[in-house]
């Protein structure tokens, strides 16, 4: 058994002059559920697209199971089930036709058995003959998930799987993820801490295309309590830093980048 199902080494992706992610290293061990946490534009989707082989990194390497993703993309891709942020669905096909198509893409034999299992696991049996275009958003998300698991991959990569869903649908998808866990590796992204803490064993926090924290939720909260505190503030950075440094117990303030109006600062105790 391989020690890491996903092993990314210093991956960087540049789109022309823009660096989307820079030197990200990430490893996911068998059985782990890892959450990629970060605000919009932090580099979560780009990281996931690289890990799934959708696009190559500008530099760095990715291993999936025993395979190097660039050297053996076909073998590596067979190990991955991927649900992008917008589920890739053909609205003209029925749920069953869509899953049969994916089963055929992966040359599964017999496809009907794999399709039936995916339908059963995602609770889509009763809508199998309905056109995807006529399904609700929650069901479409489920179809996307069923497409990702139809070939029974050992790795699931899910990009914001609950985005845009109502609270009831969010709970349903979370339960479904826990139900799908088995011995799978699951890497999911979100910009909501609650989301990640509900299902993940480990959290990797991205900011401006870099990993700024990596560990279990307990570890991260201990670090935050004892050593560092990541705060999001708005206003003049220099002035805020100066003022915070005057607070007793604060030994250092470091800036981790900013959005249009907000600044991320880590305070060292």
């Amino acid at each position: 058994m391989v020690s890491c199902m996903i092993q990314a080494e210093k991956i960087t992706k540049k789109f022309g002059p823009i660096t989307a992610i820079s030197g990200i290293s990430l490893s996911v061990k068998p059985g782990e559920i890892v959450g990629l946490l970060g605000h919009n534009g932090a580099g979560k989707t780009t990281t996931m697209r690289i890990l799934t082989g959708y696009m190559p990194p500008t530099s760095g390497s990715v291993r999936v199971g025993d395979y190097d993703l660039l050297q053996h993309p076909q073998e590596a891709k067979r190990l991955i089930g991927y649900l992008p942020e917008i589920p890739p669905l053909y609205s003209e096909l029925t749920v069953e036709e869509s899953l049969c198509f994916v089963a055929d893409l992966y040359a599964l034999n017999p496809p009907a058995r794999f399709v039936s299992e995916a339908l059963e696991r995602t609770g889509l049996g009763h809508v199998r003959h309905r056109l995807i275009g006529n399904l609700s958003k929650g069901y479409r998300q489920r179809v996307g998930l069923a497409q990702a698991i139809v070939h029974q991959p050992p790795i699931l990569i899910l990009d914001e799987p609950t985005i845009g869903l109502d609270p009831k649908q969010i709970i349903e998808i979370r339960e479904l993820l826990l139900h799908l866990k088995d011995n799978r590796v699951i890497l999911l992204s979100s910009h909501i801490l609650q989301e990640v803490s509900a299902v993940c064993d480990r959290v990797v926090i991205l900011n401006k295309g870099q990993v700024i924290a990596d560990g279990s939720l307990d570890q991260l909260s201990q670090n935050l309590q004892r050593k560092k505190l990541l705060v999001q503030v708005s206003g003049d950075p220099a002035l805020i830093k100066k003022q915070i440094e005057t607070i007793p117990g604060v030994n250092g303030v470091e800036e981790h980048g900013s959005d249009l109006e907000e600044i991320f600062l880590s305070l060292t105790a």
């Binding site: 082989g53 891709k77 067979r78 890739p88 497409q147």
Partner: peptide, 14 residues
């Protein structure tokens, strides 16, 4: 347009 290219490009297809 529909984002299904992502499905094809991440499937084991050249």
């Amino acid at each position: 347009k529909n984002g299904t290219m992502e499905l094809l490009k991440t499937a084991p297809l050249t």
